[in-house]
Write a protein that binds this DNA or RNA. Sequence first.
RNA 1: GUGGGUGUAGCUCAGUUGGUUAGAGCGCCAGUUUGUGGUACUGGAGGUCGGGGGUUCGAGACCCCUCACUCACCCCA
Length: 426
Amino acid sequence: MARHSEFQSIRGMHDLLPPESERWQLLIETFRTQLGRCGYQFLATPVVEQLEVFARLGEGTDVVTKEMYTFEDRDGQALALRPESTAGAARSFIQHRPTPPWKVWYFSQHFRYERPQAGRYRQHHQLGAECFGPGDGDIDVELIVALWDFYQALGLRRIRLELNSIGEPATRARYSERLQAYLGDRVDQLDPADRVKIEEHPFRVLDSKRPQTQAALVGIPTLVEELTPDEATRFARVCDGLAAAGVPFEVNPRLVRGLDYYTHTVFEIISEAIDAAQSTIGGGGRYDGLVEALGGPATPGFGFGTGVERVLLACDAEGVFGQPAPSLTAFVVEFGGDGSEARDLCLSLRRMGFSVDRAPGKSPKSQMKAADRSGAEFAVILGSDELRDGTVTLRPLRSELEQMVIPRAELAERLRRASTIATDLV
RNA sequence: GUGGGUGUAGCUCAGUUGGUUAGAGCGCCAGUUUGUGGUACUGGAGGUCGGGGGUUCGAGACCCCUCACUCACCCCA
C-alpha cells in the first residue's frame, strides 16, 4: 500500500472503517445477547495496568516475557499495555471485592509486540467472559457452551472444539518432570528447533508443528493419564455437560495453552475454514490460582477470549454475511427552493424515529445518485411542485413500485407502513 | 527476533531487452436528459511510479540502503 502522507497507523494496528465496522457491531451485539442470557454483565478495565499485574501471569509465557508493550510513566512507574484481559479482570475483582459469583464479559483491545501476519496483529480485539467464584466444572460448561452458541448464532459451522485437563499445579509439575525425562531420552529424535524447549517449556514440545518432532511424540505419556481420581472425575463432568448440551468436542491430550495460570479445563476453538496459520478463533480455561497469585483471596475462576479479527476471518471464509440491510429509511432530495423545507423535513422525520439523510446543494441527478448509494429504501423528493402544493414524491429505490405524490402530512404514516427498518420511536 | 514475496491513480492491476508526454478496468465528478438513482454513451479530475542514494545520454524497470505491506517460523485471539 502506497504511503501518501507523512503519518500512518502504527505497524500491526489498523483503522476500522465502515462498512466493516458495522460487522463489529453485529458481533458485539450477538455476544452481549448470548452472555446476557447467562447473567454476565459488561466489564471495562483500563488499557494500562502496572507491569507487575501481567508479570504475575508467569515467567514461562512469551506473551509476558517477549511481547509486551512496556513503558514508564513520568513518575517512573512501570506500566504495560494489556496483552490480555483476564489479569486486569482479576485485579479488578480483588480491588473491588464484588460478591461471587462475579460474572462479567468484555470487549477490549490487546497489544502484543509480534510480527503481524494473517490473523495476528499488534493491536487486536477480543470478546471474552470471566466467572470468578464457583470452582465447579459446571461453570466451565456454561461458558464453553455460551461461546459455542455465539459462534452458532453467527452462522459458523466449520469449527472444532478441543478440550483437555491439565489438573492441579502439582499434577502439572509431576507430568512436566515425566515429560522432560521422556523427551530427554529422545533428544536426537526431535527437530533441533524443539530440543531447546525441553528445559524451559517441555509442554511447548507437545504442540510443535514440526513433523520430525510429531513423529517422535507417538506413544508419549499423556496428561490425562497423570490426573488424580478427583481431577479425572471433574474433567469427566465437564465432558458430560458438553455432551448433554449437544456440543461436539474432542479431547486433545496435547493441548497446552500459552498462559501459565491455567488449571484443570483448557480449551480452544479452531476454525477449519480459515486458510491461514492462525486459525484458533477462541480459547480459554480455568485459572484457580490466579486471584491468589495477584494477592487476593483464594478464588477459582474460569474464562475465555475470542479474537474479533479472527472470528471475522472465519465468517468471511464461510460466507455467513449476506447482503447488508438498508440502514436508511429515506433520503430527502430537494430542488427549486432554498433547502430549508428539506432540512426541516429531514430533522422532523428523524425525531419521529426514522433514519434519514440528504445531500443538499447538488443537482437533482446527483442527489438521486447519492440517495441510491446511501442504501436508503425511499427517496423523498421535494421539488418546486411539491413545495408549492405541500406534497412530497415518495419514490421506492429498492423495488419496482411506482413513485407517488402524497400530501406531506401522510409521509410519516406511509414510511412507517412501507419501511422494513424498525423505528426506535413510536 | 528469523526467512520469503510485494510496493505504479481512491480500489484491483498492466507497463516488453532501460527509450518521447506513465496506462486500463472499477470508483469519483460532470454532461447526453436545466424534475429523478440503479442501464447505456461522452467527457473530466486524479500519480513526487513507497522514500533516499547510485549506474546511465536516458530509470517505473538495473544496483544499494531504508520504510511499509504481506505470508510463514516462533508464539498466540
